[in-house]
Computed example of a mutant assay.
Amino acid sequence: MKKFLSLGVGVLLLSGCGLFGGREAALTPDQQMARYIAHAHKVDAASNFAPPPANPKKAKAGIYTSLGAAYLQEGHPRQAIRELQRAIADDSGYADAYNVMGLAYAQLQQDAAARGAFHRALSIDRKNPEYRNNYGAFLLHSGDYAGAVVELKKATEDPLYSTPQFAWTNLAQAYAGLKEMSSARNALNRALYLVANYPPALQMLAEMDFREGKADAAFAHLQVVLAQEPDNARALLLAGRIAAQQGRTAQARSFWQRCVNASPYSVAGKQAQRLLLQNG
């Protein structure tokens, strides 16, 4: 699964935990289980060999975890937790369920419960880089920058991690929290080496460049971000600030109005509204 919680520039990322996707998500766990078993039997009959026996409890835990992840992506963490509790009831060693539960509790700002869930996931699968990234991002947004660096570096060092750009960008934020700006830039450059024009990394580079007085470089980064994410409220807000600083008032107002239209109740959207009033 891809990212679903945006907290600042960094992101919390969900591991790929589902057995089914697409239209299967509309089925109940029991219905999905029935289809899973029927499909397994059909494959068995067609292939003329007997596969290892399935573990129904683990399969059902995977289904509940997929449903919990879907609820969380849709902004319903409490419903997600209920599904994840069902997953754990079927298989108390199902690490993905604890990982997603940590993210759900973090969204509810129940930090102790989130920390416990992440610890449980890592106790089951200590080397999983996605769990490390998620836990590191949780520590980052809890203000434990040093702890976040430890976890996120472990995630970036795993050669099998399929989306390391996430961890490198989170690591950059952790270094920035420690005021280690050179290390933060190096981490962002690493993310962009792995995935060219990765928007969260470019967004953070733009913010760093703007603070250092490099407005043109910052604006160039933001143009690339907005070409991919035209409704990115934070990018629109900063692009408007740069345009205003450089005397392009009409363009600044256009960026701020787009920011308000895209996300009126976000922090960026509220700031854009204030700037529009001040520069009316």
Rank of each mutant, 00 (worst) to 15 (best):
L27N: 05
A45R: 04
P52N: 01
R35H: 07
Y36N: 09
I37Q: 15
E24C: 01
Q32L: 10
N55H: 14
I37V: 15
N48R: 07
A50H: 15
A38T: 08
K42I: 01
A40Q: 05
F49H: 14
N55K: 13
A26H: 06
S47D: 12
Q32D: 11
N48C: 04
P53K: 15
A26L: 13
K42R: 13
A25M: 11
P51K: 01
D44H: 14
L27H: 02
A45Q: 05
H41M: 11
T28W: 13
V43I: 14
P52L: 03
Q32C: 08
A45S: 04
N48S: 10
H41S: 09
H39I: 08
K42G: 00
L27A: 05
P51H: 00
P56S: 06
N55M: 11
A40R: 05
A40H: 01
A46F: 02
N48T: 04
P56E: 05
E24Y: 08
A34L: 14
D44K: 14
D30C: 06
Y36K: 09
M33K: 09
N48D: 12
Q32P: 02
A46G: 06
D44G: 06
N55A: 14
P52M: 02
P56I: 04
A46K: 03
Q31C: 07
L27R: 02
R35I: 05
Q31S: 08
S47Q: 14
F49T: 09
P56V: 02
D44P: 01
R35Y: 04
A54V: 12
A54L: 15
A38H: 04
A50G: 08
A50I: 15
A46E: 11
P53A: 15
P29L: 05
S47M: 14
M33S: 13
Q32E: 08
V43F: 09
A25L: 13
A26M: 04
I37W: 05
A46D: 03
Q31Y: 07
M33D: 11
H41V: 06
A38E: 12
P29M: 05
D44M: 15
N55E: 12
N48V: 04
A50K: 15
A38Y: 02
T28H: 12
Q31D: 11
A38K: 10
E24P: 00
P52F: 00
A25C: 05
P51M: 00
E24F: 10
F49Y: 15
A45D: 03
Q32G: 07
Y36I: 12
D30V: 05
P51A: 00
T28Y: 10
A45H: 01
A38C: 02
Y36S: 08
A34F: 11
E24G: 02
K42A: 11
A40T: 03
A34D: 15
A45M: 02
E24W: 06
P52D: 03
A34K: 15
N48L: 10
A25I: 14
T28K: 13
A26P: 01
V43C: 06
P53D: 12
H39G: 08
T28F: 10
A38P: 01
A26T: 07
V43A: 09
H39S: 11
D30G: 09
L27W: 03
I37K: 09
P53Q: 14
A54G: 07
A34G: 14
